[in-house]
Computed example of a mutant assay.
Amino acid sequence: MTIAHTWPGWVATGLLWFLALEFMMGAVTKFWPGPTFFGPAYSIKFADWGWPAWFRFVVGAIEGVCALLLVIPYHQARFLGATVLILVLTGAVVTHIINHHGPKESVAAPVHLVVLSIVALATWPTHWMDVVQPGHWS
């Protein structure tokens, strides 16, 4: 019996799909031109946070690609997706701290940062080159 057929494997896969859906939704809302169910348009939010409005497209694209990497059933892909999202989330946490946001606006980024750090540790490759060498994802 493989780990995918056990309870912990099922939970881990469900968590990864949940995270991927969250980040895919975040990616879509970064490209959305107007207000979202998260509040004002991200073009306005990014400008208010001190970033250029176009930077939301960069963040959204990174989130979308990493969301896809999280659901690819190879540790190297999941590790790469989690690691890049850790970098993005570190920027989000720092942005929220610098802008003195309250708990309502600044809880999600640190929580996701911790969760994705756990994912990255759980999918840590045995050798660093395994992440970047083609043909090792099989």
Rank of each mutant, 00 (worst) to 15 (best):
A41Y: 12
A41E: 08
A41I: 05
A41V: 01
A41Q: 00
A41F: 07
Y42E: 06
Y42V: 01
Y42R: 02
Y42H: 10
Y42G: 03
Y42S: 02
Y42N: 12
S43H: 11
S43W: 12
S43V: 12
S43C: 10
I44E: 03
I44A: 11
K45W: 13
K45M: 12
K45R: 10
F46P: 00
A47I: 10
A47N: 08
A47R: 10
A47F: 09
A47S: 06
D48E: 15
D48A: 13
D48H: 13
W49P: 00
W49Y: 15
W49C: 05
G50Q: 08
G50F: 11
G50S: 06
G50T: 00
W51M: 11
W51Q: 05
W51G: 04
W51L: 14
P52F: 15
P52G: 13
A53E: 12
A53M: 13
A53Y: 11
A53I: 04
A53C: 09
W54Q: 08
W54C: 05
W54T: 01
W54H: 10
W54Y: 15
F55V: 03
F55R: 03
F55G: 00
F55W: 15
F55D: 04
R56V: 15
R56C: 06
F57R: 11
F57Q: 07
F57M: 12
F57L: 13
F57Y: 14
F57A: 11
V58A: 14
V58R: 00
V58S: 03
V59W: 10
G60L: 06
G60M: 04
G60I: 02
G60D: 00
A61N: 03
A61L: 08
A61T: 07
A61W: 04
A61H: 04
A61R: 03
I62S: 09
I62A: 08
I62E: 10
E63K: 09
E63T: 03
E63N: 02
E63P: 03
E63H: 08
E63I: 06
G64D: 00
G64F: 06
G64H: 01
G64A: 07
G64L: 06
V65S: 13
V65C: 07
A67H: 06
A67F: 07
A67S: 04
A67T: 05
L68I: 10
L68H: 07
L69Y: 05
L69N: 06
L69D: 03
L69K: 05
L70R: 06
L70E: 05
L70Y: 06
L70D: 10
L70G: 09
L70N: 01
L70C: 08
V71C: 09
V71K: 05
I72K: 04
I72H: 03
P73L: 04
P73T: 08
P73M: 07
P73K: 05
P73C: 08
Y74R: 09
Y74F: 11
H75S: 13
H75A: 15
H75G: 14
H75R: 13
H75P: 12
H75M: 12
H75I: 13
Q76N: 14
Q76I: 00
Q76T: 13
A77W: 09
A77K: 02
A77F: 15
A77V: 08
A77I: 13
R78Q: 15
R78F: 13
R78Y: 14
R78D: 09
F79G: 10
F79K: 02
F79E: 07
F79W: 10
L80K: 11
L80P: 01
L80R: 02
L80W: 08
